[in-house]
Measured scan of single mutants.
Amino acid sequence: REWTEQETLLLLEALEMYKDDWNKVSEHVGSRTQDECILHFLR
């Protein structure tokens, strides 16, 4: 499923705060797994 604008904003926000702590990043996004966050980030 597609990422919403809100999810993408949360991802970018989390990356600024937590860098590459993907566990914390995915918790911050809330609706995505670590793997989904990493894959989206790599696009």
Score class of each variant (00 low, 15 high):
E7Y: 00
V25N: 06
V25L: 05
H40P: 02
E7L: 01
H28S: 01
F41W: 14
D21A: 07
E5D: 02
D20V: 03
W3P: 09
L10P: 04
E5H: 08
S26V: 12
E5P: 04
W3C: 03
Q34H: 11
E16C: 05
K24I: 05
K24E: 13
E27Q: 06
S31G: 11
A14T: 00
T33V: 04
L9D: 09
L39Q: 12
L11V: 07
K19V: 06
V25I: 14
W3K: 15
Q34P: 10
E13H: 06
T8D: 07
T8R: 15
S31M: 11
E13F: 00
T4R: 06
W22R: 01
R32N: 00
E16P: 10
S31C: 09
W3S: 05
I38H: 15
L11G: 10
S31E: 12
F41C: 04
S26N: 02
E7C: 00
M17F: 01
H28C: 04
I38R: 15
T8H: 14
N23W: 08
S26R: 13
T8C: 10
L42T: 15
L15P: 02
L10R: 07
H28V: 05
T4C: 01
D20Y: 09
T8G: 13
T33Y: 06
E5Q: 13
S26A: 14
E36L: 00
C37I: 15
Q6F: 07
E7M: 01
E27K: 11
T8S: 08
L15T: 14
E2G: 13
L10I: 05
K19G: 06
H28N: 00
S26G: 12
L15I: 13
L15R: 15
R1H: 06
A14C: 01
C37H: 05
L10Q: 10
Y18D: 06
Q6N: 11
E2F: 03
W3T: 07
K19W: 03
E27A: 03
S31D: 11
L42E: 15
E7P: 01
E2C: 03
Q34R: 10
C37E: 02
T33D: 12
K19R: 08
L9G: 13
R1M: 14
T8K: 12
E7R: 00
I38P: 04
C37Q: 07
E5V: 07
L11A: 05
N23K: 11
T33R: 13
E2P: 14
C37K: 05
K19N: 14
K24Q: 11
E13C: 02
T33I: 01
V25R: 05
C37N: 02
T33Q: 09
L39V: 10
R1F: 15
V29C: 02
R1K: 15
E27Y: 03
D21N: 05
S26H: 12
D35R: 11
E36C: 05
Y18G: 08
L42R: 15
R1V: 14
H40F: 15
A14D: 01
Q34E: 10
M17D: 09
L10K: 11
C37P: 01
R32S: 00
A14R: 01
L10E: 15
A14H: 00
H40N: 05
R32W: 02
V29S: 00
T4L: 06
L9F: 08
W22Y: 08
R1G: 13
L10Y: 10
S31I: 13
F41I: 06
L9I: 12
D21E: 08
L39T: 14
L15W: 11
L12R: 14
W22T: 04
T8N: 14
N23C: 12
V25A: 10
K24R: 12
L39E: 14
E27N: 09
V25Q: 00
K24C: 08
S31K: 10
T8E: 12
G30S: 08
E2L: 13
E7D: 02
D21L: 00
G30R: 07
L10C: 09
E36K: 03
D20I: 01
K19C: 05
M17Q: 10
M17H: 05
T33G: 10
L15V: 14
E13A: 09
L9M: 13
S26C: 09
L39W: 06
N23H: 10
V29T: 06
E16R: 11
F41V: 03
D35V: 02
L39D: 15
I38T: 14
I38Y: 12
E27W: 03
E27F: 05
D20N: 09
A14F: 00
W22Q: 00
A14K: 00
L11D: 01
L39Y: 08
E7N: 00
H40R: 12
V29P: 00
Y18F: 04
A14N: 02
L9K: 14
L15H: 15
E36F: 03
E16D: 08
L11C: 08
M17A: 07
Q34A: 06
F41E: 15
I38V: 10
E27G: 09
Q34L: 09
S31H: 09
W3Y: 05
Q6V: 08
R32E: 03
E2Q: 15
V25C: 14
D20W: 06
W3I: 06
L11F: 09
L11N: 02
H40G: 07
F41K: 15
H40A: 09
L11K: 02
S26T: 12
D20Q: 14
Y18S: 06
D35C: 09
E36G: 00
K24F: 11
I38L: 12
G30K: 10
E16M: 04
C37G: 01
F41D: 15
V29D: 01
E5C: 08
K24M: 14
E13S: 06
L9S: 13
G30W: 01
N23F: 11
H28I: 06
E2T: 15
N23S: 12
Y18M: 03
L42M: 13
E36V: 00
D20R: 14
T4G: 01
R1T: 14
C37F: 05
L39A: 13
E27D: 07
L9R: 13
K24L: 11
E7Q: 12
A14V: 00
E2A: 12
S26Q: 03
E7F: 00
D20M: 05
Q34C: 12
E2R: 13
E5W: 07
L9C: 13
T33K: 11
M17G: 08
E27C: 04
H40Y: 14
Y18A: 04
K19I: 06
L10S: 10
A14S: 07
V29G: 01
A14E: 01
K24T: 10
N23Y: 06
L10V: 11
T33P: 08
R32C: 04
E27M: 07
W3E: 04
Q6Y: 07
V29A: 02
V25K: 10
K19Y: 04
M17V: 10
E16H: 06
W22H: 06
N23L: 11
Y18L: 01
L42V: 14
I38A: 13
N23I: 08
R32Y: 04
G30N: 08
T33M: 05
D20H: 11
L15A: 15
E2M: 13
E36D: 10
F41S: 14
Q6P: 11
F41N: 15
D21G: 05
C37T: 03
R1W: 05
K19D: 08
L10G: 08
E7A: 03
S31R: 07
L42G: 15
E36T: 02
Q34W: 02
T33H: 07
E16I: 01
E2Y: 15
D21W: 03
R32T: 03
T8W: 07
E7V: 01
W22M: 04
T33E: 06
Y18Q: 03
D20E: 09
L9H: 14
G30E: 12
E5G: 06
M17W: 08
L39C: 14
L42A: 14
L11E: 02
W3D: 12
K19A: 06
V29W: 00
E2W: 01
G30T: 09
E5R: 05
R32H: 04
G30P: 07
A14W: 00
K24A: 13
H40D: 07
E16K: 09
W3L: 08
W3Q: 06
R32L: 01
T8M: 13
G30H: 01
Y18P: 02
E5K: 12
R32V: 03
G30D: 09
V25W: 03
L42H: 15
S31T: 14
N23R: 12
W22C: 01
R1I: 15
R1P: 09
E13Q: 05
S26P: 04
E2I: 15
T8A: 12
D21Q: 08
Y18K: 03
H28K: 06
D35M: 10
V25G: 01
D35A: 12
D21R: 07
K19Q: 08
L10D: 07
V29K: 02
Q6L: 08
Q6C: 04
L11M: 05
H40E: 15
V25S: 03
